[in-house]
Design a protein around this nucleic acid. Structure first.
Length: 857
RNA sequence: GGGCGGUUAGCUCAGUGGUAGAGCACCGGCCUUACACGCCGGCUGUCACAGGUUCGAAUCCUGUAUCGCCCACCA
C-alpha cells in the first residue's frame, strides 16, 4: 500500500467537510469522466450485464423505486470495482394503458384507429369538453411527447440518487427499437407456429373493452348472493333446484352439471330441464369438477359466467349462448331464432326485453324481480361475500367474452420452464417457488392481444374476401427489414393504400400487444438483438435481473418464456428479488392509499447517501418499513466518514513499518471484513456487508482512533507514529472502497482528497493487500486491540458514572487478565496509557478479565 | 383449500447449535486539538406458544397460533 502513502504529498482536506452539495458536485463529474460508461470492447467473461427494470413513466417514481434500484446499484458498483465492464442500462416503460389514459386527459384527445395519420396535427391548447379524435400514429406521437417529459424528471432523480447507470444505454418500451424487436420476435414465433390466433372465450374487461391475460388478474372480495332457482324437468314432472350468484345469466344457460358420483342426481343425467322464464331445454350432465358440497350440489353452466363454465363447456361440448357484449351489457336477442329456441318464445322475449341492454349488475336485480313473480325463485337470496376476478387495473368484474385473440404458446413448455426456474439463481432462494407455483398453475396459453392503441401493433394484415370479411387464416406479414410497421397505416407488399378495407384488398390487424409482450424482451431490446450482434454476444445471456416479487408471474415469467422460445436458454443467470416498502401500518405503500412520500424530498433532506443507506439495510426480498430514522442514521454515517477521514488524512506524517499491536490488529480486522464482504456481495447479500462494515467502522472511530491519537501525534517517536500512519491509511483506503457502493458520494469525496481517479473505478480491495504490510493476518494483534478497547471502555464508564470530563486523568488502573492475555496487554500498554490518561497501570493474573479504575482528584 | 415468508428490547431489525445483539427512542453525563449534523455511559427481553432432538436450542424437527404475500375450478 505504499502507493496510498505516496499520494499523500498532495492531500487536499477541507476544513469543514460536509455532505451538502456533494450530489451536485459529483453527478456532472462522473458524467464528464464517463465513470459508468460501458466498455463494449471487453469480452463476455469480463462483462456484468443487468436487465434493469424499466419503471412505468406515467405517474411518478415513489420511494419503493428508490429502494429497489439502490439494491441493484450497490451490486453494479461492486462488480465494476471488481473489474467487470458493467452493462447497466435504463429503460422507460411508457407503453400501455396508464400512458394512454394520461395522454387522453392531458391533450383532450381520443384515439380512433380508423383515421389516417395527420402529419400536421396539433392538439388543442387546452383539453376541450369533447375529446378530439386522432389517428393511432398521431395518438402515439402525443403519448411519446408526454412520456419524454416524464423521462427527464425520472433521469434527474436517478442521477441524484447516484445510480451508476450508463445513460447512453436507454430505451423506451414504445420506442422504435422496442417495437422492432417486439414485432420481429412475434413474426418469428408466428412462423414457427408458436404464436397463433383463435376465436375463443377470453377474460374481458368491459370498461377497457379489451382482453386481459391470466397474469393480470386479481381477486377482490365482493358482496353477492346465492339465489336458489327452480328448473322444471322437461318430462316426468318435478323440479331441479340450483344455486347461482349470477341469475342474470339464466338466458345463457346451456346445461346443468353435477358430480358423476352424486346419487341425488345420477338418475337425472342425460335428461333435460327447462330454464325458468326462457323455456330453453338444457341437459343435465356429469363432471367431476362439480362439487356436491356447494349449493344444492348441481350447478348451472352458462356461456360464460366464470372460467369453470369454460372448462365445462369445452369438456362437455356444449353449444354457445352468449349474452354479454364487449361493453358489459346484455345483447338484444330475437327468441325463437336459430340458437335461441324456446318452448315459449313469446314469454322468453317478453322477459328478456326487460334485461336487454342492461349491465350485468342491473340485469341481475331485474331478473330477480321476474323470477320472484314467476315463482321460480325459492326463498330470498342469501347474501355472501365472495372473491371475484378483476383486471388488476379495472373497476368492474371481468366477464368472459368470445373474441379473436393472439396467443403465445406456453403450456407446451411447462416442463422446460420449470427446469429454467430451478436453473436460475434466486436471491433470496425461496423466491424460486413463486415462479414454480405460477408455472404449475398456468391455465392456458398467454393471450397477448389487447384491443387498445398505445402499444406495439401486431405486424399483420389480412386479405379482405369478396364478401367483405377478413381471411384470418391467411395473414400477410412484412419482411423483418420493414419493421417496425403499423398495419393501420402501412400497406402490405403488393397492395396499394386505396385497397384498405375493401373487398379484394387488405385490412390491418387492429390490436396491440400486451405490455408484457414487449417488456418480456428487455434483454433483447437493450442488448441489441437483430441490430448489433456484436453487442448482443457480449451481454446475453445477462448476469442479473433485479425486480420486485409482485411481478414474478408477469415480467420474470414472460421474459424466461420468450428467451426459452427464442434461444432455448435462460435470459440471465441471477434474479435478485426486492421486497416492498410498507408504510408504518405495515400496508403496502401505494399511491391509492395516499401515503407516498416524494423521493426527491427525501434525497434533499437526508442526502442521497442517507437514503441509500436505508435502502441497502434491507435484506433481499424482505418487505421493509419506510423509516426516515434509518435515513438519518445513514446520513450520520456518511458525515462520520468525512470527519474520520479528515482526521486520518490531516498532517499524516511519515509512513513506515507497521509494528504496533493495535495497528496489526486493525489491519487484520479490516482484511477479514473485506474477505466476508466480497463473498457476501458476490452472493447479493449487500445488507449484511453494510451492517458489518458500519460496525467495524464505528469500532475504528471510537476505539482505534482514540488509541493511536497520541502515538500518531509523535508522542512516542517517529517509528511508532509511522506504524500508525501506515495502518490508518491502509485501513481507511479499504474501508472507503467497501463503503463506495453504498455511500458513493461521501466515499468519492473523501477519495478525491488524495486521489485523482474516481473511487468507483478503483479496484475492490483484496484481503491479502491489507495485511501485506504486516506479513499476513495477526490474530494476537486483534486480541490486543480488543483488550485495549475493553479497558478503554471501563475507564470511560467510570468517568461517566462519576460525571467527570473524559479528559480526567486516571490515577490508577488495576487490570486483571487471564494469564494468556497478559502478553497482549503488554503489547498495548503504551497506547492504553496515552488514550486513557492513565498515570499508574497495574496488571495482575486472574481467571477473568476485570478493571478497577481510580480517577485522579 | 395449497404454497411461501415473518413473529427477538417501546420502534425498526441483525443474529442458522455454545453466557441474548445493533440502531433509534428513553435516561444521565461530557466543549475530548476529526466530528455538537458530536462524544461517553446507562435502562430495556418467558427470542409467539407447545412438544421433541441435543451435554447445550432464538437457531434443528413436529405441531399450534398469528400477521403478510403468492396461488386456486370463486356454481
Amino acid at each position: 500500500m505504499s502507493s496510498e502513502i505516496d499520494r499523500l504529498h498532495d492531500v487536499r482536506v477541507p476544513d469543514k467537510p460536509a455532505l451538502e452539495g456533494l450530489e451536485e458536485k459529483w453527478m456532472p463529474r462522473w458524467e464528464q469522466a464517463g465513470v459508468y460508461r460501458f466498455d463494449r470492447s471487453r469480452p463476455r467473461a469480463d462483462v456484468y450485464a443487468i436487465d434493469t427494470p424499466p419503471p412505468t413513466v406515467s405517474g411518478s417514481l415513489h420511494v419503493g423505486h428508490v429502494f429497489s434500484y439502490t439494491h441493484t446499484d450497490v451490486i453494479a458498483r461492486f462488480q465494476r470495482m471488481r473489474g467487470r465492464a458493467v452493462f447497466y442500462p435504463m429503460g422507460w416503460d411508457d407503453n400501455g394503458l396508464p400512458t394512454e389514459r394520461r395522454a387522453q386527459n392531458y391533450f383532450g384527445v381520443r384515439c380512433d384507429p380508423t383515421l389516417p395519420y395527420d402529419p400536421h396535427f396539433a392538439p388543442p391548447d387546452k383539453p376541450g369538453k369533447h375529446p378530439v379524435s386522432v389517428s393511432r400514429p398521431n395518438f402515439i406521437e402525443l403519448c411519446a411527447r408526454l412520456t419524454a417529459e416524464d423521462e427527464k424528471v425520472f433521469e434527474a432523480l436517478w442521477r441524484r440518487l447516484g445510480l451508476s447507470v450508463d445513460w447512453n444505454l436507454t430505451y423506451a418500451t414504445i420506442g422504435r427499437r422496442a417495437q422492432r424487436v417486439s414485432q420481429a420476435s412475434f413474426l418469428r414465433l408466428l412462423a414457427r407456429g408458436l404464436a397463433y390466433q383463435v376465436e375463443a372465450p377470453t377474460l374481458w374487461d368491459v370498461d377497457f373493452r379489451t382482453a386481459v391475460a391470466q397474469a393480470e388478474l386479481e381477486d377482490r372480495e365482493l358482496p353477492g348472493a346465492y339465489h336458489r332457482i327452480a328448473f322444471a324437468r322437461a318430462s316426468g314432472g318435478g323440479r331441479v333446484e340450483i344455486e347461482t350468484t349470477r341469475p342474470e345469466l339464466i338466458p345463457a344457460c346451456v346445461a346443468l352439471v353435477a358430480h358423476p358420483d352424486d346419487p341425488r342426481y345420477q338418475p337425472l343425467f342425460g335428461t333435460d330441464v327447462v330454464t325458468p322464464l326462457f323455456g330453453v331445454r338444457v341437459p343435465i350432465r356429469a363432471h367431476e369438477l362439480a362439487d356436491p358440497e356447494k349449493g344444492s350440489g348441481i350447478a348451472m353452466i352458462c356461456t360464460f359466467g366464470d372460467v369453470t363454465d369454460v372448462v365445462w363447456w369445452r369438456a362437455l361440448s356444449l353449444p354457445v349462448r352468449a349474452i354479454i357484449q364487449p361493453n358489459g351489457a346484455l345483447r338484444p336477442i330475437a327468441w325463437g331464432s336459430d340458437g335461441w329456441e324456446s318452448i315459449d318464445p313469446g314469454r322468453a322475449q317478453q322477459a328478456y326485453d326487460q334485461l336487454a341492454n342492461l349491465s350485468a349488475a342491473k340485469a341481475r336485480a331485474k331478473i330477480v324481480e321476474l323470477l320472484r313473480e314467476s315463482g321460480d325463485l325459492i326463498g330470498d337470496p342469501r347474501p355472501i361475500t365472495h372473491a371475484v376476478k378483476f383486471y388488476e387495473k379495472g373497476d368492474r368484474p371481468l366477464e368472459i367474452v368470445t373474441s379473436r385473440q393472439w396467443f403465445i404458446k406456453s403450456m407446451a413448455f411447462r416442463e422446460a420452464l420449470l427446469s429454467r426456474a430451478r436453473e436460475l439463481r434466486w436471491h433470496p432462494s425461496y423466491m424460486q417457488l413463486r415462479l414454480e407455483n405460477w408455472i404449475n398453475g398456468l391455465a392456458g396459453d398467454w393471450c397477448v392481444s389487447r384491443q387498445r392503441f398505445f402499444g406495439v401493433p401486431f405486424p399483420v394484415w389480412y386479405p379482405v374476401l369478396p364478401d367483405g370479411t377478413r381471411d384470418y387464416a391467411n395473414p400477410m406479414t412484412p419482411g423483418e427489414d420493414r419493421l417496425p410497421i403499423d398495419p393501420s397505416t402501412d400497406v402490405p407488399d403488393g397492395y396499394r393504400a386505396d385497397q384498405r378495407d375493401v373487398p379484394g384488398g387488405f385490412s390491418g390487424d387492429p390490436d396491440v400487444m400486451d405490455t408484457w409482450a414487449t417488456s418480456s424482451l428487455t434483454p433483447q431490446i437493450v442488448g441489441g438483438w437483430l441490430e448489433d450482434p456484436d453487442l448482443f454476444a457480449r451481454v446475453f445471456p445477462m448476469d442479473l435481473r433485479p425486480q420486485a416479487h409482485d411481478i414474478i408471474r408477469t415480467w420474470l415469467f414472460s421474459t424466461v418464456l420468450r428467451s426459452e422460445l427464442e434461444f432455448g436458454a435462460l435470459p440471465w443467470a441471477n434474479a435478485a428479488i426486492s421486497g416492498w416498502i410498507l408504510d408504518p401500518d405495515r400496508k403496502k405503500m401505494s399511491k391509492s392509499k395516499g401515503n407516498v412520500v416524494t423521493p426527491m424530498g427525501l434525497l434533499e433532506e437526508h442526502g442521497s447517501d442517507g437514503v441509500r443507506y436505508w435502502a441497502a439495510s434491507a435484506r433481499p426480498g424482505t418487505d421493509t418499513a419506510f423509516d426516515p430514522g434509518q435515513m438519518k442514521v445513514g446520513r450520520r454515517l456518511a458525515i462520520k466518514l468525512l470527519n474520520a477521514s479528515k482526521f486520518v488524512l490531516s498532517k499524516p506524517g511519515p509512513a513506515g513499518e507497521v509494528t504496533a499491536a493495535v495497528d496489526r490488529g486493525l489491519l487484520t480486522m479490516v482484511s477479514r471484513l473485506v474477505r466476508e464482504a466480497t463473498a457476501d456481495l458476490e452472493d447479493y447479500n449487500y445488507a449484511r456487508v453494510l451492517e458489518r462494515t458500519e460496525s467495524l467502522f464505528w469500532f475504528f472511530c471510537d476505539n482505534y482512533l482514540e488509541l493511536v491519537k497520541s502515538r500518531r501525534y509523535g508522542d512516542h517517536g517517529e517509528a511508532a507514529a509511522a506504524s500508525a500512519n501506515t495502518a490508518l491509511l491502509t485501513a481507511l483506503s479499504a474501508l472507503l472502497r467497501v463503503f463506495a457502493p453504498f455511500l458513493p458520494f461521501a466515499a468519492e469525496e473523501v477519495w478525491s482528497w488524495w486521489h485523482d481517479d474516481s473511487i468507483h473505478r478503483a479496484a475492490w480491495p483484496l484481503p491479502e493487500e491489507i495485511v501485506a504490510p504486516i506479513g499476513g493476518e495477526d490474530p494476537a494483534g486483534v486480541e490486543a486491540l480488543e483488550l485495549a478497547a475493553a479497558v478503554l471502555g471501563e475507564i470511560r464508564k467510570k468517568k461517566s458514572e462519576q460525571q467527570r470530563p473524559l479528559k480526567t486523568a486516571v490515577a490508577r488502573a488495576a487490570i486483571r487478565v487471564p494469564p494468556g492475555s497478559r502478553a497482549r496487554l503488554a503489547d498495548v500498554e503504551a497506547d492504553l496509557r496515552a488514550a486513557g490518561l492513565i498515570q499508574q497501570l497495574d496488571v495482575q493474573d486472574a481467571d477473568a478479565f476485570s478493571v478497577v479504575v481510580e480517577l485522579a482528584a
